[in-house]
């Protein structure tokens, strides 16, 4: 039982970080971005490329303490965050920005669906379909709770790293949104774009900031997924439904809602495994989604429709 909860929080961390991006893009650009999952995949793979590059130049590094990875992965994560943000800005410039000028939200969804396929297949073309790993080091899981208490709890250092960095990211984002001018401008634009403009806010800048934050968190989430599971071209596609479910569950537009929603969806997935079997795990997100649409479509923290 405890183990399932812990596993749920770990997958929930990945979902939460991805769902923040979905909810931010939704609240500022006003469309459900079906390409967001691909930002996770690209983030994961770009970090992998950076990692190979770093190791090729500086040689392999010893793992850091109990973790399966050394400093190169941390650098690779930073490189990937920048590159993924650049990718998101590029897609926006080439595609979404053009459509924003004269299209409506629904053309944007359509375009994002197309962009997702293009990005995924391009990635598969470049990297191939074989799963990859950041590290093949074997990790010893730490026993936190003995087996006779609620089934016990074992966790790997990497998983603790994921939980810790997720918490840091969320706190960092909170400070950004509540203390900085750009953050406040983003919140202002999300509730009232027209008023934002007459207040002097350059909405194009806000949009760029939104893509950058969403993409950076997506890269982090992608790397976490690669670290705790493996790298596959379908990584982002498989996470897309949980991302949407988490964002809607939390109340679309609410960053904290997305975090809570992500953790709940992660837990639901994990706890459903003993009930329905691992093969239907991914359908849990769909059940959560339909339930929330039927019961409370504004989500847990959403006030706006």
């Amino acid at each position: 039982m405890l183990q399932l909860v812990a596993d749920g929080f770990i997958i929930g961390s990945v979902i939460a970080l991805g769902a923040i991006g979905v909810t931010l893009v939704y609240s500022i650009l006003r469309f459900a971005n079906f390409a967001h999952g691909e930002l996770l995949t690209w983030g994961a793979y770009l970090a992998w490329t950076a990692l190979i590059g770093i190791v090729a130049v500086w040689g392999p590094a010893e793992p850091l303490g109990p973790f399966s990875f050394g400093w190169p992965l941390l650098v690779a994560l930073a490189v990937s965050a920048v590159a993924t943000a650049a990718l998101a800005l590029l897609v926006d410039r080439l595609l979404f920005r053009q459509l924003r000028r004269h299209g409506n939200a629904i053309t944007l969804i359509m375009a994002s669906f197309g962009a997702a396929l293009v990005l995924r297949n391009l990635l598969q073309f470049i990297y191939g379909a074989v799963p990859e790993y950041y590290s093949r080091e074997i990790q010893v899981a730490i026993r936190l709770v003995p087996r006779d208490v609620l089934g016990g709890l074992r966790i790997t250092p990497d998983q603790l790293f994921v939980l810790g960095l997720t918490a840091v990211s969320v706190v960092g984002l909170h400070i950004f949104l509540t203390r900085t001018t750009v953050g406040k401008a983003m919140r202002a634009t999300s509730v009232n774009p027209q008023l934002a403009r007459v207040t002097g806010i350059d909405v194009d800048r806000v949009i760029r900031a939104t893509w950058i934050i969403g993409a950076v968190l997506a890269a982090v989430a992608g790397v976490f997924s690669g670290l705790t599971v493996q790298l596959r071209p379908q990584l982002g596609l498989d996470l897309l439904l949980p991302l949407f479910a988490a964002a809607i569950l939390g109340g679309i537009g609410s960053v904290y809602g997305a975090v809570v929603g992500g953790l709940i969806v992660g837990l639901a997935e994990s706890l459903s495994v003993p009930l329905v079997g691992a093969e239907y795990r991914a359908a849990t997100a769909f059940v959560v989604l339909i339930a929330i649409l039927l019961i409370r479509p504004t989500g847990l923290f959403g006030e706006r429709t």
């Binding site: 939200a105 439904l241 991914a282 359908a283 997100a285 769909f286 989604l289 339909i290 649409l293």
Partner: peptide
């Protein structure tokens, strides 16, 4: 309308 898009996507996945 976005919710229909997401829900139908969920149908296909499931």
């Amino acid at each position: 309308h976005d919710y229909l898009a997401i829900a139908t996507f969920g149908v296909a996945v499931t």
